[in-house]
């Protein structure tokens, strides 16, 4: 035996890490979900290869990454367009491709969007910690040694259930609707009102829905800080610590909203204006530092319809993938 198939990282920044669809059911221990910030892109990347949609891949965040395949395999890239090349051959985004041992994949920092996702046939086979292969970057466990990637890292690849059968030259699918195509795009996400919405005056509601917010540069996987006008409640709101979830839009006393995300603390106490619907969280994962963001009000029914639309997109990816791979 020669041991598991591997990929070797030749260059990476610590912003890039191994992620799957996250850790669930351990929030009561104070452990957050982690996981891909753009779960649509990771899911699509996996489905292109015939992987389970929640297999672990590499989240490549706004920075270059180079790696070498140490075994024959297949891979796919979805999400932001990092102008990837395989041994110099350009690859479009949302594309699957076969790779031979020794070939080198290079991904650049994207010009639009924020994160690209690399999936490999069989998934990145790091140990499962509390039900997930995601890296918890805040606490430092899971993924590859509980940290972001660095040159010299070797990541094991799992054995695919069936050979991926990628056609010569590879194949691709269309990105989901609303994928940012230019740097100037403003992202819109739908939001359901939360418990303290009514504690803010009407003028603050108006401001909340109409402002083109700007993502502050100190935003990260823990949370997004937004620059814009201050939202001040009618009276100061004091809350006891309670569980919070990715997508919760809080308003700290200074008045600028922040959105809690995948690596956020599991409890908080700031007033909650709203919650970004689950189906739109991936759009936040593609929002660039300094990028524009608008909130649009949604009902629970609209949120559920948006979930169904995401599922329909992924079902389409799965169908296209099976057709292209003739399985």
């Amino acid at each position: 035996m020669t041991g598991p198939a591997m990929i070797e990282i030749l260059a990476a920044t610590p912003l890039s890490s191994v992620q799957d669809l996250g850790r669930s059911g351990v929030r009561r221990y104070g452990i957050g979900v982690s996981g891909a910030m753009d779960p649509m892109a990771l899911s699509a990347a996996n489905l292109l290869l015939g992987n389970e949609r929640g297999a672990a891949g590499i989240e490549i965040t706004a920075s270059p990454l180079r790696l070498r395949f140490l075994a024959d395999t297949a891979f796919s890239l979805c999400g932001a367009d990092g102008a990837a090349t395989l041994d110099g051959l350009p690859l479009p985004p949302f594309w699957a491709m076969a790779a031979r041992a020794g070939q080198e994949l290079s991904v650049r920092a994207p010009r639009a969007g924020m994160r690209a996702y690399l999936a490999v046939a069989g998934g990145i086979d790091v140990p499962v910690v509390m039900g997930s292969r995601s890296t918890d970057l805040k606490t430092g466990f899971g993924g590859h040694e509980g940290r972001g990637l660095a040159a010299g890292d070797r990541l094991p690849i799992g054995t695919p259930a069936a050979p991926p059968r990628i056609p010569e030259g590879g194949f691709g699918v269309a990105p989901p609707a609303g994928m940012p195509l230019s740097e100037a795009d403003t992202t819109e996400v739908r939001v359901i009102r939360a418990a303290q919405y009514g504690r803010f005056p009407e003028a603050a509601h108006e401001t909340f829905w109409s402002t083109a917010w700007t993502l502050r540069p100190d935003s990260n996987r823990m949370g997004f800080r937004l620059a814009g006008p201050a939202l001040i409640p009618v009276e100061r709101v004091e809350l006891l610590s309670h569980g919070i979830l990715p997508g919760v839009v809080q308003v700290p006393p200074a008045g600028e909203p922040m959105i809690q995300l995948n690596d956020a603390n599991t409890c908080g106490g700031y007033p909650k204006m709203g919650v970004v619907i689950g189906a739109d969280l991936w759009r936040l994962g593609q929002l660039r530092l300094g990028g524009g963001l608008r909130f649009a009000e949604a009902t629970r029914e609209e949120a559920l319809a948006a979930r169904a639309a995401n599922e329909a997109y992924l079902a389409g990816v799965s169908r296209a993938s099976r057709l292209a791979r003739r399985v």
Binding site: S24, R28, S241, G243
Partner: peptide, 28 residues
């Protein structure tokens, strides 16, 4: 309530806070 809610169909997590409880469920 948290202990009870975890056993309900469709409930994914019940997370006690300080004099509050967050229940996460599968809307499907």
């Amino acid at each position: 309530m948290a202990r009870a809610a975890e056993a309900w169909p469709g409930v994914l997590e019940a997370i006690p806070g300080v004099n509050n409880l967050l229940v996460v469920y599968d809307p499907a």
